[in-house]
Amino acid sequence: MQNYRRHIEEHLLPNFEDKALAGILRTDVDLWQKRESAVYAASSVRTWRATLHVIFEDAIDEGLITTNPAARRRGRGMRAGRSRGRGPEKVITDALGILLTAERAALLSGRDDEFVAVVLKGYTGMRWGEIVGLETEFARPTSIRVEWQLYELDTGEFVRCPPKDDSYRTIDAMDWLSALVANHVARTKLAPCPCHGRTFVFRGQGTARAGGHQGAKLVDVARRAEVSTGTVSNVLNHPDRVSEAKRVRVEQAIADLGFVRGGTASENAAHWRRNGFSTWLFAPAVSAGIRRRHRRKPAPYPCSASLGPAFQPEDGAPATGPTPAGSRSPRASHRTDSATPTEP
């Protein structure tokens, strides 16, 4: 419901709230869709038009109007619609690509959850919400049962709901894939999450937050101490640049407000955030973080310098991400190697 409310408030009301229902014509809707399509993705605009269509259908049921100006004309003869604009099937990757992506994601996170999740998604085609919402009872010896998904709202809340379009299904799994998931569940000793009270196959990463930044913010400290936010930042990062009097005021404000850098962190996150997983794990894992101006031939490189001779920094450009404890920094290794003369 939250997403529908945003669609209405941000994209429908600004264009139609001043018009009477009976005064909205099909041409008005088509013109609005054309303007929106010039700025937003076509799939998003279609979703907003579908929402508008439902609103007009409700108005028809109430007897307020007789026709739906947002209704699309149906095709004649052969089936028209989505199939008409579909292109040929694309091969995204192969078995080796899935393995390399999963391996890099696990190295970036330092856990096995990401490795198992990427492999499972690559071989089953499960949607993101279905992967996040996979409960241990539905990871069976020879199959994966898709019964629920976790839908992420803008507030960060996860809603347990049926899969998209009621696409309940049982996916046959190879013996090795079922064993991979079962061993992961047994090894990680999973516990029920605090938000749903259910045990999920995959755990979140980082700290959980409810509804964005909690507690006092940097600007609150600045107002309390009667200084600029830049001064507060300097007190936190470069105290030598701030006078003694201002520093004391800022430190007192921090103590009074209970300010914590980055917000008040609570327990570990129970589930992955879509944007965080994509930005910090999946995208770097797919691209390997290869620098465009690297003067050597690009090669896939998991970001660890302690995996043995098969994965040495000289094989390619280093991937971005945190360096595992006890290993050399990939960036440092890259700088050392680049200083070594090489043959042209």
Rank of each mutant, 00 (worst) to 15 (best):
residue 183 N to V: 02
residue 95 A to R: 05
residue 186 A to W: 03
residue 179 A to F: 08
residue 142 T to D: 15
residue 108 L to Q: 08
residue 198 R to D: 15
residue 183 N to P: 05
residue 200 F to D: 01
residue 178 S to P: 06
residue 145 R to V: 15
residue 97 G to Y: 02
residue 142 T to H: 14
residue 107 L to G: 00
residue 186 A to E: 09
residue 135 E to N: 07
residue 138 F to Y: 15
residue 102 A to N: 00
residue 151 Y to N: 14
residue 174 M to S: 07
residue 155 T to M: 01
residue 178 S to Q: 03
residue 140 R to M: 15
residue 170 T to N: 12
residue 123 Y to A: 02
residue 198 R to N: 14
residue 130 E to M: 07
residue 193 C to Q: 03
residue 124 T to E: 01
residue 108 L to D: 00
residue 188 T to K: 03
residue 156 G to P: 05
residue 100 L to P: 01
residue 131 I to P: 04
residue 93 T to D: 02
residue 165 D to T: 08
residue 123 Y to V: 11
residue 141 P to A: 11
residue 206 G to Q: 07
residue 173 A to C: 06
residue 166 D to K: 08
residue 183 N to W: 03
residue 191 A to W: 07
residue 189 K to C: 10
residue 106 A to M: 04
residue 209 R to T: 03
residue 160 R to D: 15
residue 128 W to K: 07
residue 162 P to E: 11
residue 195 C to I: 11
residue 183 N to M: 02
residue 135 E to A: 13
residue 133 G to H: 10
residue 174 M to G: 09
residue 194 P to N: 02
residue 113 D to I: 01
residue 195 C to E: 14
residue 95 A to C: 01
residue 204 G to V: 07
residue 192 P to L: 05
residue 147 E to H: 10
residue 150 L to A: 11
residue 116 V to E: 05
residue 121 K to C: 14
residue 118 V to M: 12
residue 208 A to R: 05
residue 163 P to W: 14
residue 137 E to S: 10
residue 153 L to V: 11
residue 167 S to D: 15
residue 102 A to K: 00
residue 105 A to N: 02
residue 195 C to L: 11
residue 98 I to F: 06
residue 108 L to K: 02
residue 199 T to L: 01
residue 96 L to A: 11
residue 162 P to A: 08
residue 188 T to L: 02
residue 111 R to F: 03
residue 139 A to I: 01
residue 101 T to W: 13
residue 105 A to Q: 04
residue 196 H to Y: 09
residue 209 R to P: 01
residue 132 V to W: 04
residue 181 V to E: 00
residue 142 T to C: 04
residue 199 T to E: 06
residue 91 V to R: 10
residue 134 L to N: 07
residue 212 G to K: 03
residue 109 S to Q: 15
residue 135 E to C: 13
residue 104 R to D: 10
residue 167 S to C: 13
residue 197 G to V: 09
residue 113 D to G: 01
residue 174 M to P: 00
residue 92 I to P: 09
residue 156 G to N: 07
residue 185 V to H: 00
residue 144 I to A: 15
residue 203 R to K: 08
residue 138 F to D: 02
residue 209 R to A: 07
residue 121 K to A: 12
residue 156 G to V: 06
residue 114 E to F: 09
residue 113 D to V: 00
residue 142 T to E: 15
residue 129 G to S: 15
residue 137 E to H: 11
residue 184 H to M: 03
residue 191 A to V: 14
residue 133 G to A: 11
residue 157 E to I: 13
residue 173 A to P: 01
residue 217 K to S: 11
residue 216 A to G: 08
residue 217 K to H: 14
residue 195 C to A: 13
residue 183 N to G: 04
residue 96 L to Q: 12
residue 146 V to Q: 13
residue 137 E to Y: 11
residue 212 G to Q: 03
residue 162 P to H: 06
residue 172 D to N: 01
residue 130 E to R: 06
residue 164 K to H: 15
residue 213 H to D: 12
residue 125 G to K: 00
residue 200 F to M: 06
residue 138 F to L: 03
residue 91 V to E: 12
residue 172 D to M: 06
residue 93 T to K: 03
residue 137 E to T: 07
residue 137 E to I: 12
residue 103 E to H: 07
residue 184 H to E: 04
residue 208 A to E: 12
residue 187 R to V: 01
residue 127 R to M: 09
residue 122 G to D: 08
residue 214 Q to T: 13
residue 119 V to F: 02
residue 214 Q to I: 13
residue 98 I to G: 01
residue 188 T to A: 10
residue 199 T to K: 07
residue 206 G to D: 12
residue 168 Y to D: 14
residue 150 L to G: 10
residue 133 G to C: 05
residue 96 L to E: 14
residue 167 S to N: 11
